[in-house]
Design a protein around this nucleic acid. Sequence first.
DNA 1: CTCCAGATCCTAGCAACGCTAGATTCTCCT
DNA 2: AGGAGAATCTAGCGTTGCTAGGATCTGGAG
Lengths: 191, 191
Amino acid sequence: MPNQNRRERERAARHELIVRTARELAETEGWDAVTTRRLSQRIEYSQPVLYSHFAGKDAIVGAVALQGFTELADALAAARVGAGTTDEAVPAVIRAYLAFAETNPALYDAMFTLSTDLPFAQDTTPAPMQAGFAQLHDVFAPLAGERDTGVFTEVWWATMHGLVTLARGGRLPAGAQEQRVAMLVEQLTAR
Amino acid sequence: MPNQNRRERERAARHELIVRTARELAETEGWDAVTTRRLSQRIEYSQPVLYSHFAGKDAIVGAVALQGFTELADALAAARVGAGTTDEAVPAVIRAYLAFAETNPALYDAMFTLSTDLPFAQDTTPAPMQAGFAQLHDVFAPLAGERDTGVFTEVWWATMHGLVTLARGGRLPAGAQEQRVAMLVEQLTAR
DNA sequence: CTCCAGATCCTAGCAACGCTAGATTCTCCT
DNA sequence: AGGAGAATCTAGCGTTGCTAGGATCTGGAG
């Protein structure tokens, strides 16, 4: 029964099509526009097909988020190796993180605001999510001094995350983000 | 026509009732449970009454958020004057901020996650919102050194906000929040 | 006291949402 | 060629935010 293989391939392709379409729709029109009806219409299948691939809309958002974690980890890793010295790695990674959030706002929302049931910081945490934090940890840890490197990383991660979420929605004055990033870098590297 | 006064008083009372009920419902069962039907049922009026007071559900959330900003500003001010020395004011205000977010999670969500159309950081920004930031600014500014006090405050505000939002939803390991707060305080006051 | 205008409030309904049961069509092996 | 099982769709349920239209109440004028 070699057809079984083709079936599985087609299924996987459609699975990926759903995730990709949901992401595109979210990035262009916002997550509010990502309804099961519009999504099913875009992939040219009926609604129930979505539910044969995912438990529900939340699961679709989660799949998009997981994709985001992979890309974020890759982006941070690339920034790290792209930096010449170790000193340059810190600002490079910080800027890469903030650039990622700014370039993919809907994706970032899926990762940190929308999807509520992703297992963070546990043994069952998916590899991509652990990888992203690991990148930050490796870069920030040398600056921790005598302090716990994990907690240290978490605090500065929180700063970056806070800057991202506050800047979005105009919670912070527009235009001054570069100043804030510069201060964040300086605050973190000084000492 | 003295009845007009009574009318206006009753209207204001009902306005306040709506906001209070929405907040209670959100705090006990989450914002998902705050539907216009349940809300109207709780205040013992029909749905359209809500729309004679507010433009829509978003406006109700916004009203709750505004209440939150007032209370947050008060809480920060109280922590500030409650602290003995100026040095003690910084950790006191930080802890007050985080305690506020932890005690009123739904309220905090309304302020910083849900309500999207509140005018932050503008001339039209409501007084309570400016007051909250002003409290932080006054406490953090002395630590800024040569740096811009506004940007300095924004960065550390972002750290607090990031810790709040990441801790919520289990993005950060549970139980270690106190460690992170301690490190935040130390990082901010050292130097 | 009566009557009518205007304010006040509710019933009923619309379109869109996430999701699912049941019928229908297609696929493939015997 | 036929039938089992997979694949897919149509149609619909209950719920959402919101609103049009009619009913009810209020209060001053005749």
